[in-house]
């Protein structure tokens, strides 16, 4: 065996005595808190900038592509002069940059602009958006719980039948478009068995009249996303199973459940959080579609009208709201990642 004389001793300078002694505990923790706040601020800023970038892209894309609200809302017989007047009325004749900054600076105040029909977008979305958010939120919670449970169940029995069945079912589930699944659910749970109401009826406050009306839309949204996230949880746990400390925990004779939940899962959480956060967009978008099928009083109905009426501002406003909601979930995922990153200094 070869040994280097000089430096060999220095190479092993990992003695606690030579390691820098930690300062007074309180100053240390205050320092740490300050550092954490700084990091959190940086993440918040980055996410906000990304959201602003999305809105910029959306706004520009809408402008570059042919057609605008004035031509779109015009009737067939309108003259060119009438359209020009409409354009002026809607402020479309002003430069792109000016309109964009106006729109962007108004956003934080809750002003989402004016729709093609001259109504405030914020007013149009005030009632439906919370309903959609509730639907997507319920589906999100169900997705998180179910995919964690199923993923852990599969990972606890690698290669066995439970694992394979869960794997194939998950693959099947995430392939089915949510509106197709919703149609199937209506057929089975409502029309053939009569267990659940097929159509959502809103009460006086604009909310679904009964909570049972939420069941089918939520299932239709959650099942495909659960399929997708179960696979992510399973794969993340598989990666963690090879980590040295998980291997060591197994050699310490700890139970499979304990090794999985205490040693493998915390390390897999960053990946899982990212995966589930990515699902938020699918859930929100899916909610819009499923709502039209169930006549749920959410964004779906408003947006269907917006598409028919070529109302770009309304859709851009919805994009801003959805983007803000997704940003919040991504920030939560950032938090989970920071908590479980493992450096833990």
């Amino acid at each position: 065996m070869a040994a280097l004389t000089p430096g060999a001793a220095a190479a092993g300078s990992t003695d606690p005595a030579t390691a820098s002694p930690p300062g007074p505990a309180r100053a240390h923790s205050a320092h740490r808190a300050g550092r954490a706040a700084l990091r959190a601020g940086a993440v918040l800023l980055r996410r906000t900038l990304v959201l602003a970038a999305l809105l910029a892209v959306v706004f520009t894309a809408v402008e570059i592509l042919p057609g605008d609200a004035a031509t779109a809302t015009a009737d067939r017989g309108d003259s060119a002069a009438a359209i020009a007047a409409r354009r002026e009325h809607l402020g479309l004749d002003r430069p792109l940059w000016e309109r964009f900054t106006d729109w962007m600076t108004a956003l934080p105040t809750g002003d989402l602009g004016t729709s093609a029909r001259g109504e405030k977008v914020a007013d149009l979305l005030r009632d439906p958006f919370p309903n959609t958010l509730a639907l997507a939120g319920a589906a999100f919670v169900l997705t998180v719980a179910a995919s964690l449970a199923l993923g852990c169940l599969a990972a606890a029995r690698p290669g066995r039948r439970t694992d394979r069945v869960i794997g194939h079912t998950a693959t099947t589930a995430f392939a089915i478009p949510d509106f197709v699944l919703a149609t199937g659910l209506v057929l089975v749970l409502s029309l053939w068995t009569g267990w659940l109401p097929a159509v959502t009826v809103a009460d006086a406050s604009g909310k679904p009249a009964e909570w049972t009306m939420m069941i089918m839309p939520v299932l239709a949204l959650a099942i495909p996303q659960t399929g997708w996230n179960t696979r992510i949880v399973r794969a993340a746990l598989t990666d963690q199973a090879d980590a040295p400390h998980v291997e060591a925990a197994r050699l310490d004779g700890l139970s499979t459940t304990r090794v999985l939940l205490r040693h493998a899962l915390p390390g897999a959480l960053p990946v899982i959080a990212t995966g589930i956060a990515t699902s938020t967009g699918m859930l929100l978008g899916g909610a819009v579609v499923v709502e039209t099928l169930f006549n749920h009083p959410g964004m779906g109905t408003v947006l269907a009208g917006a598409v028919a009426g070529r109302d770009t501002t309304l859709i851009a406003g919805s994009v801003a709201l959805a983007g803000a909601a997704i940003t919040l979930v991504l920030l939560a995922a950032d938090l989970v990642r920071a908590k479980t990153a493992g450096a833990g200094r």
Binding site: A248, G253, A343
Partner: peptide
């Protein structure tokens, strides 16, 4: 039985014990 033995009677410390400690505990 093997797990019980590992859990109560045997103990192993590997070459790189730093990586064998759960970094999140």
């Amino acid at each position: 039985t093997l797990n019980r033995l590992r859990r109560t009677e045997l103990a192993y410390v590997g070459q790189d014990p730093g990586s064998a400690l759960n970094p999140r505990m």
